[in-house]
């Protein structure tokens, strides 16, 4: 358990939903960005189908807003690296070469360690 000061807490945001399945992935990114904008340390983990958020997307035909720009803006808010669950990549057959720069592939013990050093964990 991390011991944050009263006004600064390490927030871990775990995104498990695919980008256009609903609005949760987008909400998770918004929450992470808001926390970072208020100078809170943020750890962002993409797990399960959440790893689909990192793939290059063509949303023109789908008529929805592209989430890739939001992902690309994360380092500007000091949300880096982006943590990606290794098992999810293996299960979904996604090669790390398909993912953007600035990611870190993490196994279960590494995810446990990230959670352990968080004050709060929220799941989207």
């Amino acid at each position: 358990m991390a011991t944050g000061t009263p006004d600064k807490k390490t927030l871990t945001v775990i995104i498990t939903h695919a980008p256009y399945q609903g609005t949760l992935a987008r909400s998770g990114l918004d929450a992470a960005l808001a926390a970072a904008a208020f100078d809170q340390p943020v750890q962002l983990i993409f797990s399960g189908h959440g790893v689909y958020n990192l793939l290059e997307q063509d949303t023109e035909t789908a008529g929805t807003r592209n989430i890739s720009k939001l992902i690309a803006s994360l380092p500007l808010y000091d949300i880096e690296p982006l943590y990606i669950e290794a098992a999810a990549l293996a299960q979904l057959g996604i090669a790390t070469t398909a993912l953007p720069a600035g990611i870190q592939v993490v196994d279960e013990p590494a995810i446990s360690a990230l959670i352990d050093r968080s004050d709060h964990v929220v799941n989207f």
Binding site: P6, D7, A31, A34, A35, F38, H120, N123, F124
Partner: peptide, 21 residues
């Protein structure tokens, strides 16, 4: 605004998510 969530995180011992589907 989302600042209210960040404030809740900063001023609470526990922040519990009741997740969506």
């Amino acid at each position: 605004g989302l600042g209210q969530l960040v404030d809740a995180s900063a001023h609470s011992d526990r922040l519990i998510t009741f997740g969506g589907v």
